[in-house]
Nucleic acid binder design. Structure first.
Length: 751
DNA sequence: GAACCCATCATTTTT
DNA sequence: TGATGGGTTC
């Protein structure tokens, strides 16, 4: 197979029987999966229809399909490439009725879950102070991740009163979910498992179809997902899982690392292939990552190596406060920029979202464009959620949660008292809120509000008619954007916002328009668009997936969201005990908690291709209190020879910005050394020394060596002259003749 | 029914 | 520090 190393190509062609691919960071994992699929189709003439590839995020799924599509001529559309969750939705939409469900179920997100829990606690007469919603949700989620029913959990409670109560909440919660005809994210997996367990015919349909199954990020699977994969693969046993135990960072959401560690116990005939060659990072960066992760116990033995050049030392800076730290990072970025590095090559990573604020402030001040990944997304805005609640209620009249959310939004004079009466009565008669209100017999019970409720229901009925979910409208006549316009308009939602006239209201109106754009996009890009499909997409596809990667901006995100990405230049901030590793993990009685933080550190370090800077502060404000954190243990785990420390007294060692956009950072002079020069073709945006001016970089070629340059091809090193922290290298290229360049920028590779 | 004020409480997150 | 939510007051 072309362009693959031995291990990679072995992994591609080993297709019969169970296979575990341990793919280290930057070892070309996605490449292997896509080539493997191409191999199955092109070389073995496998029908694409019988291939299933499961990923965790939609982004990964899309990327995979695109890359397969480039490798093969036809058929990529009929491969099932999807996330666990969308796969399960697809199966349940077809067969959920086989186990007594309704195929038009609604998907509930965490906010909806919270609302259900609230009702449940009220109903059971339990104190939300003693049993916080969050705790209930995570209890239920944990149970479902383990494929345990309320009865199972009840048995497990033993003599613990609290556990028994929690099991009760779980049972009552499920009852409500059935009433609302809704499934939460964990239910999607759980119910599919239940379907497969109870209906062998359905199981056989999928088992027979999927002759070849691949699971990406296998270290992130929970127990239920493990069971699901196991069932699907039971017939042909052509199961290939790809993962890296060292990058398991999602234990808190149920990821079970033993799935990958015990794969060989589960499948004794499994072949194991390790991908240990890293194509991403410099030697220094990779060795630092290896040194850190070596402190963990209970991992699969594995040692990443690379043929890449040694590279610059890792910079480690200590500042006085978090503000100075941010300031220092910005200065470093401006330096990089003045060397010709693109903003989009740079990422700032942190442990907690709260850390982004200070960084953002400084970035704005310095006029540096940035994009923030994660955080509270578009679909969490109140006005957007309101609109989606309308759509959800239209699609599923049993959805009491959405009904309660919008019955008086915008205000239509239906107050809490009335709503509570509706709830009580409807609950007593076993009807949904919608059906209860729709029944003419009940209007009188509702007194003065009766007519208002009548109006509301008849409006919703009109919307329902328009939506086409009743099957009364020919599909080509359904227009979701029209439906959306009607909702925004006829409910008076927009009018209410316009009347408000505040800046905030204006922003909300913009968000309403933005949602319309998204709906229009969906309608355009989908073969058979419908309300169900739209809601699915909204629930299952995070809006972070559609970020415009073309923009030249610095990326800000948590270490968690950085997994799977790479950047030439990475800054990891907040390298302090109790921040990273987090205090909770240090205090935990589970020894694996700190190990998981260490894996997170490993993930962070291995995101960097060329340049890595770590930083911390000697004092930091956390939750309103000033703290004086010690240096992170992970710093101590990086061998000194890879690292260049500076700072401690913060500001004094921070260089002024090379070219501040505003003039925020005090005296702005010039950056010494190679800074300031406009990048030209000889100076491909590359590496810069960042903070230090002492020599640090080491390169593995000498005068007379033959080297390869990414653009100019092969050449011979004519001279190598030290200048600042860098070397000025002159190379005589076979094709283009003699070129002078900075070693750190040239990315020369010895041949 | 709505505005306002005070208490509370804080990892990580995709689906 | 800051967001959020419940309770109180008008």
């Amino acid at each position: 197979m072309t362009g693959l190393n031995d291990k990679q190509s072995e992994a591609c062609s080993y297709v019969e029987g169970p296979l575990l691919i341990l793919a280290g960071a930057g070892s070309g994992k996605t490449r292997v999966i896509t080539h493997r699929i191409a191999y199955l189709i092109d070389e073995l003439a496998v029908n694409p229809y019988s291939i299933l590839a499961i990923t965790f995020t939609n982004k990964a799924a899309n990327e995979m399909r695109e890359r397969v599509d480039k490798l093969i001529d036809v058929g990529s559309v009929s491969i099932w490439v999807s996330t666990f969750h969308s796969m399960c939705v697809r199966i349940l939409r077809r067969f959920y009725d086989r186990i007594g469900g309704k195929n038009n179920f609604t998907i509930y997100d965490t906010d909806d879950q919270k609302a259900v829990i609230k009702e449940v606690l009220k109903n059971l007469g339990m104190d939300p102070k003693m049993y916080p919603e969050k705790a209930c949700i995570s209890y239920i989620s944990k149970a479902k991740e383990e494929f345990l029913t309320p009865d199972d959990m009840d048995k497990r409670s033993g003599t613990s009163y609290r556990d028994m109560q929690m099991a009760n909440v779980y049972r009552e919660y499920q009852k409500r979910m059935v009433q609302n005809n809704a499934l939460d994210f964990d239910d999607l997996i759980f119910k599919t498992l239940e379907l497969f367990t109870r209906d062998k015919e359905v199981l056989d349909i999928y088992q027979s179809r999927f002759r070849y199954i691949m699971v990406d990020e296998y270290q992130d699977t929970n127990h239920s997902q493990f069971l699901l994969v196991k069932m699907l693969a039971a017939k042909y046993r052509n199961l290939c899982v790809v993962g890296d135990d060292d990058q398991s960072i999602y234990k808190f959401r149920g990821a079970d690392i033993s799935n990958i560690l015990n794969f060989e116990d589960e499948y004794p005939d499994a072949k194991v292939i390790k991908l240990e060659q890293n194509y991403r990072s410099t030697k220094v960066i990779l060795d630092a990552a290896n040194s850190v992760i070596a402190n963990n116990e209970g991992r699969k033995s594995k040692k990443l190596w690379t043929e890449n050049y040694i590279g610059n030392k890792i910079k480690y800076m200590v500042f006085e406060t978090e503000y100075e730290e941010a300031h220092g990072v910005i200065n470093a970025i401006l330096d990089q920029r003045s060397m010709g590095r693109e903003y989009s090559d740079i990422a700032i990573l942190y442990r907690t979202n709260a850390q982004s604020r200070v960084l953002e402030e400084k970035l704005i001040y310095a006029n540096i464009p940035y994009k923030l990944v994660g955080g509270t997304g578009f679909y969490n805005r109140k006005e957007v959620r309101d609109m989606i609640a309308y759509l959800k209620l239209i699609a599923n009249h049993s959805d009491d949660i959405s009904f309660s959310r919008i019955i008086n939004v915008p205000r239509r004079g239906i107050g809490a008292t009335t709503v509570n009466r509706i709830k009580d009565n409807a609950y007593a008669s076993g009807q949904s809120l919608y059906d209860y209100c729709k029944s003419p017999d009940h209007i009188d019970d509702l007194g003065r509000s009766g007519s208002k409720i009548c109006d509301f229901i008849s409006m919703m009925d009109d919307f329902t008619e328009m939506s086409g979910i009743l099957g009364n409208v020919p599909p080509e006549d359904i227009c979701l954007t029209d439906l959306y316009d009607s909702i925004v308009d006829k409910t008076g939602y927009k009018t209410a916002l316009v009347a408000e006239g505040t800046d905030e209201a204006k922003a909300r109106i913009e968000n309403l328009d933005e949602l319309k754009n998204k709906i229009a996009h969906y309608e355009q890009d989908t073969d058979e668009p419908g309300l169900m499909g739209l809601l699915e997409e909204i629930s299952l596809v995070a809006d972070t997936d559609e970020g415009l990667d073309t923009d030249n901006k610095v990326t800000l995100m948590t270490l968690h969201s950085a997994k799977g990405l790479e950047f030439p230049c990475v800054y990891i901030v907040g390298m302090e005990e109790r921040l990273f590793p987090s205090g909770l993990s240090i205090d935990s009685d589970d020894p694996d908690a700190v190990e998981e933080e260490r894996r997170l550190c490993y993930v962070g370090i291995t995101r960097a291709m060329e340049e890595l800077m770590l930083s911390g502060a000697t004092t930091r404000m956390i939750n309103g209190t000033r703290t004086y954190p010690a240096e992170s243990r992970f710093i101590k785990e990086i061998p000194k020879e890879f690292m260049e420390r500076s700072g401690v007294k913060g500001r004094s060692v921070v260089k002024p910005a090379a070219r501040p956009a505003v003039k925020p950072f005090g005296s702005s002079t010039f950056a010494p050394g190679i800074g300031g020069a406009k990048p030209d073709i000889n100076n491909i945006p590359g590496v810069q020394k960042g903070f230090s001016s002492s020599g640090s970089a080491v390169y593995d070629y000498e005068v007379g060596d033959t080297v390869r340059h990414i653009k100019f091809g092969k050449g011979t090193v004519v001279s190598k002259v030290k200048g600042g922290s860098d070397y000025e290298v002159t190379v005589d290229f076979e094709k283009v003749g003699e070129k002078k360049m900075f070693a750190s920028l040239a990315r020369l590779k010895k041949v």
